[in-house]
Amino acid sequence: MNPGEQPVGLEVELFREDFCAATEQIVLNSPMFLFIYAAQRRQAARQVWLIGLCVFALGLLALLAGAPGLALPGLAFGLATPLLAMLIVQLISQDRIARTSARLLERAIEARQSSWRSGAWTFEADAKGATWSNGKRTVRAAWGVVVAIVKTPTHVLVLDADAAVMILPVRCFDAPEDAEALTHAMGALVEVARAESAAAA
């Protein structure tokens, strides 16, 4: 299966679980999400540091004012702030966010709050790019805008710069080796497109 040599076409039946698996991988691989969550983590850690500094200063003031009973908790809390900041950063790790996002998407699909619908999709890939459609939505992406081709034990995912995703469950391939071959072939096409755009720039 090599779209660079011959166009590839696949009929895909997607279920809610497929979208949830895809969401986890989007959060873990899409540059847009990596960037947003990294910035949010930095912001949260900064807030905790700031609050810790204020509490430490208050504790210090209490100590100077001769109230050690009040000062000790403040100083202890201030000194424990780096630990708390580390804990918060750990709590909002990319893995955890990915799992939470998948769970929330599952609920959103159940509540029909999300426009991602299960059902039949078609995937077509050729030397220039990939097309993904369910009749209601058709997305065409040249290999140059694909940011990641992700292969998990159960899915092959094509992510583009806008965090749109094409989801190919391994069960839709005749053999698991076909999924592996398509992943490598698409990866090579993305590399070529990137090299061409870098050369053009």
Binding site: M32, L105, A108, Q113, S114, S115, W116, G129, G135, K136, R137, T138, V139, R140, A141, A142, G144, V145, D160, D162, A163, A164
Partner: peptide, 29 residues
């Protein structure tokens, strides 16, 4: 490099700001 064709069924919301409107076709695009 990219194209997208959405039927109106794929649009879940119309979001409006002071100088922009956005037809939402997935949770983040």
């Amino acid at each position: 490099l990219r194209s997208c064709r959405d039927s109106w069924e794929a649009i879940s919301a119309v979001l409006v700001g002071p100088d922009h409107a956005l037809l939402l076709d997935s949770p983040a695009t």
